[in-house]
Computed example of a mutant assay.
Amino acid sequence: MTSTTQKSGEFTLGNALTVQRLGYGTMQLTGDGVWGPPRDHDEAVRVLRRAVELGVNFIDTADSYGPVVAEPLIREALHPYPDGLVIATKAGLTRAGPGDWRPVGRPEYLRQQAEMSLRHLGVEQIPLFQLHRIDPQVPLDDQVGELKKLQDEGKINLIGLSEVSVDEVKAARDIVDIASVQNLYNLADRSAEDLLDYATAENIGFIPWFPLATGELAGAGSKLGALAADKNASPSQLALAWLLARSPAMLPIPGTSSVAHLEDNLAAADIELSEADVRALDDAVA
């Protein structure tokens, strides 16, 4: 496979860090329920290394993936890191078991987790540190304010938010610059459309999680499947190409624990969609 992510284009986060728009997310490297180690440790390492070989320079992770599984895997596979690699991690969700996610945004906890991520990733500064969830029990000023303190201390470079509304982003921006937002968004679920439009207008990176929720759209005889066949592409590739076409601020991070699936996903960078193609995909899930 000769394709790389370069054809996906570039985006500069916070006017500071330029990344290829098609990245990689590490959540699926962990065990079932995003809990525990990967089923195939060596393949997980190969996936991370292959992603970078194919041009990925934006990797998304979190302290809660495992927990404490994905970050050490990244370090094992890629440290010392190649120049230009941007690792984005997150804190603010705790784990009590498989599939169990609980927000904790106390400032002392966020600081502790930032310090642990520095250690687990083996870096002196985290390129992009995201608040995984806003904790409703803690004032937003306290949560984002602590991230600003960490930024002022040089421990994190850029700050992002995850699963937020436009109003929450605006409130956070009154405290500190926000470089990225990460919300559920894909071809079948566009509930964050208003946030995407806001992020695009404000030059804030939009990281769609669960970008390949094609579901029944990719099934036998589906409209997406037919469109993909016309493009000589897989449904997943078409879903990712649609995301890339949707906004220049879009930064898809498809995750997988398989090198073969990784290569298939990243080949989406080669697909060029016309306006008619985009409309057809829009109609496929209208």
Rank of each mutant, 00 (worst) to 15 (best):
G25A: 08
R246I: 09
A233G: 07
W242H: 04
G221H: 09
A51C: 05
Q151A: 00
I126E: 04
V123H: 06
L150C: 10
T200C: 04
E76M: 02
L212D: 07
A220Y: 11
L22Q: 04
E53C: 05
D230I: 07
L266S: 01
G92T: 00
H132W: 12
P67I: 10
G23L: 06
D152Y: 12
S274D: 05
N265R: 08
L266I: 02
L281K: 13
R49Q: 14
P254A: 12
L187Q: 10
Q20T: 03
R50S: 08
K7R: 13
A228L: 10
D270L: 10
N232S: 14
T2I: 15
L150H: 03
L224S: 01
V259N: 05
Y65N: 13
D264S: 12
L13D: 03
Q20K: 12
D83F: 14
V45H: 07
E275I: 13
S117K: 08
V138E: 06
W242I: 04
T26R: 01
R279M: 13
S117V: 04
A91I: 07
I134E: 04
D230L: 10
T30W: 03
H132Q: 12
D60R: 04
M116K: 15
A88C: 13
F206Q: 01
A199I: 07
K170C: 07
D264Q: 14
R49L: 09
P82H: 09
G25I: 00
E115D: 15
S258T: 07
L131I: 09
T214C: 01
T256S: 10
L78R: 01
Y65F: 05
E76P: 02
R119W: 12
V123G: 04
I175D: 10
L273Y: 12
V169T: 07
A172T: 02
I207M: 11
E275C: 01
L93W: 01
G255A: 08
S257G: 11
A260K: 13
L243G: 02
I156P: 02
G154N: 03
R75C: 14
S247G: 02
D282L: 14
Q125I: 13
